[in-house]
């Protein structure tokens, strides 16, 4: 479970977050949506501990991101905004590296790596160096290394961006599967169709503030728009007034 309370963050003169609050529950997919520059990625970055908040609090399974960063890191799997790979390491070595950083080793780690390679259908690239991987292939490696320690919480920054249809479908299937295992998934997206099809809850962010919060149906109802995209435009104030 992820709890965010009155989160604030500024970069010099830019107020990226001006008091964001929401909760993402276990067994649910929560979509963090909003226009470019709304603060989605900043919120995720604070949650996955690469940025420190200026004010407010954020906690994962009750552990504060500032006071207990190590505990938070043990409980999250992250597909960060930057998802660079090491060109000279193979897919398998990428997954193994992150697994070992989570304290996994030996046969247990190798078993998990094999299962992820199988699950993400990456057999063909498992033992190839990452140099020259396509966007879809890189994404699979990045996802696999985020999942190797079986994290109870998943933070995914635009997991389907730039993927072809088949890869995007596979990724969505994976997200559902993780949700069905009772884990907490928080992800950002731009594609309203995807959000509508995948999310149990939506958090609409605009200008560093939460503009709307609830199920897709609740959002449609509160904005009076039948189409989710229209509802989104209305909630963020980017639509026709």
């Amino acid at each position: 479970m992820i709890e965010v309370n009155d989160l604030r963050k500024s970069f010099k003169a830019v107020h990226a977050l001006r008091g964001v609050s929401f909760t993402a529950f276990d067994g649910e997919v929560t979509g963090l949506i909003g226009p470019n520059g709304a603060g989605k990625t900043t919120t995720l970055r604070i949650l996955y501990t690469v940025l420190t908040p200026d004010g407010g609090s954020a906690a994962v399974d009750g552990f504060d991101v500032r006071a207990n960063a190590r505990e938070v890191q043990r409980r999250i799997g992250v597909l960060a905004d930057a998802r660079g790979l090491y060109p000279r390491l193979t897919s398998r070595e990428h997954i193994r590296y992150f697994g070992r950083l989570h304290g996994l080793k030996g046969a247990e780690l190798e078993r998990r790596i094999d299962r992820l390679i199988d699950m993400l259908d990456m057999g063909a690239i498992a033992d190839r160096p990452a140099h020259g991987f396509s966007k879809g292939q890189s994404m699979k490696v990045a996802l696999a290394r985020a999942l190797v320690h079986h994290p109870p919480n998943l933070l995914l920054d635009e997991p389907t961006a730039g993927l072809d249809v088949a890869s995007a479908r596979a990724t969505r299937a994976l997200i559902r599967r993780i949700r069905d295992e009772g884990r907490c998934v928080l992800f950002t997206s731009h594609i309203m169709q995807e959000v509508g099809a995948l999310c149990d809850k939506l958090v609409v962010i605009g200008d560093g503030l939460v503009r709307a919060n609830g199920t897709p149906d609740e959002l449609r109802r509160s904005t009076g728009k039948a189409d989710l995209e229209e509802a989104f435009m209305s909630a963020t104030g980017t639509g026709e007034k």
């Binding site: 501990t49 890191q73 043990r74 930057a82 660079g84 992150f98 304290g103």
Partner: peptide, 14 residues
């Protein structure tokens, strides 16, 4: 620059 620092920092390592 390669974009691998951000994912690396999400691991439980100081």
């Amino acid at each position: 620059e390669r974009g691998s620092m951000e994912p690396l920092l999400t691991n439980p390592v100081a």
